[in-house]
């Protein structure tokens, strides 16, 4: 009886600890969101600091939405366009090449696949300088096209999809061939529909990493109106260094869409990250 009691209180302690840890994890988000609803006067007066806003205001958001030098919808569009185009190209090429590497035989297949695996291990910082110079030659810097031109093949995606494609039974493909389907029809109508789950997982990963990308867009997109949201956030904050409420409101606007996407699709996201063995 006493032992059982101890076990229950031990269990309770675990839940209390985990809840406290969770609250600590959420604290920076909460502090940011609450600060975005505080007035400037309240934020700059250390004596008047409270966790919740004393005087609830949406002025910070109004200032951002009414700022003509900050066409937010344009930056949302830039970020979404880049992320969506990269999701489409990367999922398609990963599925296609993953399928070809899993189900076809050709000369130098192993060498080619090894090379693709090796490129996953090369740090981006090494190739970013020549990649930038390539874009310069193509006249694609300061252009949204430059953000998708060099990235339509994803080494990790090919590797991942090949693992899944191997499990597709050969009999199914042969049945398609007997029925007179050509190779592209087999790929598009028989193979792809079975791969929707892994492709969705991979697609969400690509979307998040593109949406959050900072270094590469910072290099390529120098003009304000082609920039993506993370760069706009630092640019905007540099112009409003003293107004923290405004900075926090801008952060909320830029961070929230991806968090909502994550909460809606969290099962896929977590599985994708644990599959990947790669960090964002």
């Amino acid at each position: 009886m006493a032992q059982q009691k101890r076990r229950i209180s031990g269990k309770l302690l675990v839940y209390v600890l985990l809840t406290l840890g969770g609250l600590l994890t959420l604290l920076p988000f909460a502090w940011t969101i609450l600060a975005s609803f505080k007035t400037h006067a309240e934020i700059i007066n250390p004596a008047a600091q409270t966790f919740f806003p004393r005087e609830f205001t949406t002025d910070n958001y109004a200032t951002i939405f009414n700022d003509d030098s900050l066409p937010l919808e344009r930056f949302y569009l830039n970020s979404s366009l880049i992320a969506i185009i990269n999701v489409i190209t990367n999922t398609f090429t990963s599925a296609l090449f993953g399928y070809v590497f899993a189900k076809f035989n050709f000369r130098f297949k192993r060498a080619l696949f090894s090379y693709i695996l090796i490129t996953m291990m090369i740090p981006f910082q090494l190739t970013m300088i020549p990649s930038y110079l390539v874009l310069l030659k193509f006249d694609l810097t300061n252009n949204l096209l430059g953000m998708v031109a060099l990235s339509w093949v994803n080494a990790f995606g090919i590797f991942l999809m090949r693992q899944f494609m191997i499990s597709v039974p050969d009999e199914l493909l042969d049945a398609g061939r007997v029925d007179g389907a050509n190779e592209w029809q087999i790929f598009l109508r028989i193979v792809l529909p079975q791969m929707l789950a892994p492709l969705a997982t991979f697609g969400v990963l690509v979307f998040i990493s593109n949406w959050n990308a900072y270094l590469w867009p910072l290099i390529v997109l120098r003009d304000v109106d082609v920039r993506t949201l993370p760069i706009i956030l630092t640019w905007y904050n540099d112009r409003h260094t003293s107004d923290i409420g405004l900075q926090m409101a801008a952060s909320v606007l830029i961070v929230m869409p991806i968090l909502i996407l994550y909460i809606v699709m969290n099962r896929w996201v977590v599985r994708g990250f644990s599959l990947s063995g790669l960090k964002g």
Partner: peptide
């Protein structure tokens, strides 16, 4: 539930993270 919660910062834009912690 806890996994979802603790994973939230991973998907947050690192610039957003830096701005939030810069304020803290």
């Amino acid at each position: 539930l806890f996994r979802t919660l603790y994973f939230l910062p991973v998907v947050t834009s690192s610039v957003g993270v830096a701005v939030m912690w810069g304020y803290i």
